[in-house]
């Protein structure tokens, strides 16, 4: 099987001419299917830029990004939206749930934008319920985000990331807004997902969180310093 992510000689330059800032200066990354990878690096290292490009929210200036067998580095906005919907599941630091919607409706959102399958309301609801049950929230379907604890909210977000069955999960500081007990819960869920065959790429600046991953990629000054272990960050 080919790797899920292959990044070759990727650069990202913001601004032009003299004001140009190089955020990524030639990066090569490969992530195999089923891997659990942590990305670490100090502020301004380029890890956020790398994460944005991995999440198809931004395009690299040059280089190739082959995601699940397709070069997505220079796709149009509409094509990127389709890739995000089909290939990626996002977990954010601040959960990003819509406050007026129930947990169930929040999890159904990605299916609303599914361009490939026309999912009926019943099917969409059934999948969302299954997804919420898989993260242990089967009894909280109709709660609003403000009726749930931080850990529960992040579990709703994980259920949402899983519901379109994407081949890659991207987690951006998934425990950054949580207390240590909830952090453990969330990491347990990510472990379970990994054990079930999911591919997870997680950005974090906490060593003990990064330690949950099989492999740590350390980014500094727009380059991969050490693919395997990251001694110090910040």
């Amino acid at each position: 099987m080919e790797p899920i992510i292959q990044i070759r000689e990727m650069t990202k330059i913001y601004g032009e001419d003299e004001a140009a800032v190089s955020a990524l200066a030639g990066v090569d990354v490969t992530v195999e299917r089923g891997e659990f990878v942590a990305i670490m690096g100090p502020s301004g290292s380029g890890k956020s830029t790398l994460m944005n490009i991995l999440g198809c929210l931004d395009r690299p200036t040059s280089g190739a990004y082959i995601l699940d067998g397709r070069d997505v580095s220079q796709l149009s906005k509409n094509e990127l939206a389709e890739v995000r919907n089909q290939k990626l599941g996002f977990i954010f630091q601040s959960f990003n749930l819509l406050p007026r919607l129930s947990a169930l409706a929040n999890v159904m959102l990605p299916m609303l934008y599914n361009p490939v399958e026309d999912i009926s309301d019943e099917e969409s609801e059934a999948r969302a319920i299954a997804s919420l049950e898989s993260v242990g929230l089967g009894t909280r379907l109709h709660h609003r985000p403000n009726q749930l604890s931080g850990g529960q909210q992040q579990r709703v977000a994980i259920a949402r990331a899983l519901v379109n069955r994407p081949p890659l999960i991207l987690a951006d500081e998934p425990t950054g807004n949580l207390d240590s007990k909830s952090s453990v819960e969330i990491m347990d869920i990510l472990h379970k997902l990994h054990a079930g065959g999911a591919t997870i790429v997680m950005v974090t600046h906490e060593h003990d969180i990064a330690a949950h991953a099989q492999r740590t990629i350390c980014v500094r000054d727009g380059k991969i310093m050490n693919d395997g272990h990251c001694a110090e960050t910040r």
Binding site: K77, N78, A81, N85, N96, L109, P110
Partner: peptide, 16 residues
């Protein structure tokens, strides 16, 4: 704005 960003991240196209 955040809601719009989230919808885009989940696959909403500009036209949506």
């Amino acid at each position: 704005t955040r809601e719009i960003g989230l919808r885009q991240a989940l696959g909403a196209r500009p036209a949506d």
